[in-house]
């Protein structure tokens, strides 16, 4: 099968690549687009270091043939900051020493971002469940959980003060659309 052209809405911008059938989303991000935030750890979906948002949901990019997600929205850790200004989750990771070697951090931040986009006021249990697929061998997880809870609080405070964060709003809106899509009834065509 020849290579095919794949279009992704990558961090809000439409991008194209020529992909072989075996090219994973992770390879495309790192090798084609130079977005090296997502890491190749286990390549088994077990460590979470390659986690990105796929149509607003966290997904292990190492297990996705990129041709299967043609037309999808992909968000990576590189899309979070506004220039030099870190977003709430990134800043909380800095403030709470939630990163040491840094290998897990981009995936961890994307899992946390997915959680906060869906649940603005998570419990500690919610955070633990959200990051259960992201392995960290340095921190012991406690600073990470604290950072995510702190980021949630910052976002809520920002919302209460009317602070405008267009990137965060865009993610919220997108997640809502996707949720409705997923809940749609089966089409007549699928009835077989």
């Amino acid at each position: 099968m020849p290579s095919t052209i794949v279009t992704l809405k990558l961090n809000g911008t439409e991008r194209e690549l020529i992909a072989r059938p075996s090219t994973t989303l992770l390879s495309a991000l790192r090798d084609t687009f130079g977005l090296t935030g997502a890491k190749r750890g286990c390549a088994q979906g077990g460590c979470g270091s390659c986690t990105v948002l796929l149509d607003g949901r966290p997904a292990v990019s190492c297990l996705i043939p990129v041709v299967t997600v043609d037309g999808c929205a992909v968000e990576t850790v590189e899309g979070l900051a506004d220039g030099d200004r870190l977003d709430d989750v990134q800043q909380a990771f800095v403030d709470h020493f939630a990163t040491q070697c840094g290998f897990c951090t981009p995936g961890m931040i994307m899992s946390a971002t997915a959680l906060l986009n869906r649940e603005p006021a998570p419990t500690r249990q919610d955070v633990t469940e959200a990051i259960c697929g992201n392995v960290c061998r340095c921190t012991g997880y406690e600073p990470i959980v604290t950072a995510v809870l702190s980021a949630a609080e910052s976002r809520r405070d920002g919302a209460a003060e009317g602070r405008h964060d267009s990137a965060a709003e865009r993610r919220h809106d997108g997640a809502g659309e996707r949720h409705r899509d997923a809940a749609a009834p089966l089409s007549g065509k699928a009835a077989g």
């Binding site: 986690t51 796929l54 966290p58 997904a59 297990l63 996705i64 899992s111 469940e129 697929g133």
Partner: peptide
């Protein structure tokens, strides 16, 4: 469902 794998796997 929540006992199976992790959120980034359950998405797929």
């Amino acid at each position: 469902v929540r006992s199976i794998a992790s959120p980034p796997v359950r998405t797929l």
